[in-house]
Amino acid sequence: MPNLSTRWLKKSPWVYHVGTGGCNNCDIEILDCLTPRFDVERFGIKLVVSPRHADVLLVSGPVAYHIKPRLQEVYKQVPKPCVVACIGACACSMGIFKDAYSVAGPVDKVIKEIDPNAIFVYVPGCPPKPETMIMALVKALQKI
């Protein structure tokens, strides 16, 4: 649907980073995207510090049991329309932590509990390279 709002969203996606129990790898690769080598500001992507300002949630890691309600709370705080990007194998499918007793589920399952219509982007890899993340974001924004 050629919605006016998504038209500008493509040009300036502001991302908010949520670590939900990953191993840090994806988190620092996300930060790496900001730095001179990759410089996502070229595409208008900006890391913001409050979920109220965000358009894209970058979620890294399997959702640990304690963080589950907080993740849902953060998702509610984000103004819609927004995209949830699952960064890394753990966020996509729980990865190696599948059998752990304190993991509540992959990101999409947790967020679908409160919003069945959420839009997801999956970036597999352990950790995904910064190039992969940039490509995934740019592609995802082209599609919505």
């Binding site: 300036s12 500001e41 070229r42 208008g44 358009d55 819609k80």
Partner: peptide
Amino acid sequence: VGPPFFQPFYDLFKLWQK
């Protein structure tokens, strides 16, 4: 490298639509 020239305008229009 930095953002393109119209970036602040894009940001603003987007915020207006949110």
